[in-house]
Design a protein around this nucleic acid. Structure first.
Lengths: 125, 125, 125, 125
DNA sequence: GTGGTCTAGACCACA
DNA sequence: GTGGTCTAGACCACA
């Protein structure tokens, strides 16, 4: 289900965390749906179970999933309303835009980039 | 001249590196201009000279500055043409935009954010 | 695994960097293979871990290896295609040939030297 | 007369030293001919006189020039027979060739490079 | 265990 | 004065 890139430099537990958020926001994982168990994910990806535990723990702390001892982990009911997800990503977006503008990249260039991104997504995914 | 945030989590040497790039791209530091010496920066910011050395060394490897023992460090003549700077920032921008779109933030929302950023910059800086 | 010459004047971290490149290009280190850890190399060579870190960090910036905290350092998949390695060495070769020719050493003499080098390598290694 | 490149990383005194050797080997500076004075070179190049002194001192130590107090510095009579110049450059050439061969660059490729270098030199200089 | 960052301080070549 | 290398040793995130 999940995919990680060992050579990207991005910590594995973060890659995992992000994919859960993405899948949940995109509807691939429905509200209330059960996540694959820690052991399953670890085995499938060939990584250390502790790494999965860390990702799930952080997701629970952020209110994106909830875990019930002995039953498993489940996607929260109200992900999109979870403040951190949306606003965190928007903040990151603004920060990168600010940096680009500071070296002279214009707003029009950035908008052009957005437009192309949307076209690719619309066609390809 | 430079400012660093010790509690941001962003490594000091990276913060420094970014500021040099920014200043150089904005014209605050002109091509060929001498940068403050390693020891000066270290003293002013209250950090270890080695940390400054690390930032300057990376900038030199990227062709953004050049350094010579006994003479000092200088901004390169062709910064804006240095491929990495511009394209790296654009890539970072696209990546953050892609992530935002993947969770359902629309292009219009992102454009709105860009518009507000420009207004702030135009008025404030 | 690696060998360094403390009295050569060539910085240790550069010697290390070069040997990794050589081993990777010669196939002694296969693509994807794990490099000895920073601490292992430091202990074996009797040098400071920071010096090894410096060598590995540069190799990563050049795309020759990739490292991740907690996992280790690994040879990249596409070393030979990494533009810098091959072309850098060719440039260095040309530069030294140019200098030799400028003081009157003939092309034939240089070719003779190449021929002898190849014989030595063929027999000795 | 001399030219230096401040952004090359190569120490100025070495660049100077090399150019004297080159000019002497090429006949631009004849055996016995007087070199420009330390002060002249320093002024013309906009560098520190000490740097020129260092270059000249090393050239004298190598027997490439000789200095007479109060009269100036002169090119030695037998430069080409001075062992260090020729053999040092040949050694450097062999070293760079060895490195190139170690990563799989063939002798034929190196010879091709030599051939092209000669053509450029024959036509351009 | 792994690599990454940072400090404190020494020593060097260069200008 | 300038930048570059290196050691010794601490502390951190990650697996």
């Amino acid at each position: 289900m999940f995919q990680i890139n060992l050579s990207s430099g991005e910590p594995i537990y973060r890659q995992l965390r992000e994919q859960v958020i993405q899948f949940a926001c995109m509807g691939v994982l429905q509200p209330g749906e059960q996540l694959p168990s820690v052991r399953t994910v670890a085995r499938d990806l060939g990584i250390n179970p502790n790494t999965v535990v860390k990702a799930y723990a952080q997701l629970e702390r952020d209110g994106i999933i909830y875990s019930a001892a002995g039953r498993g982990s489940f996607v929260a009911q109200d992900i999109l309303s979870v403040s951190t997800v949306r606003s965190d990503l928007l903040e990151e977006f603004k920060k990168s835009a600010r940096k680009a503008m500071q070296i002279g990249i214009t707003r029009l260039e950035l908008e052009e980039a957005l437009y192309q991104l949307e076209r690719v997504r619309g066609g390809g995914l």
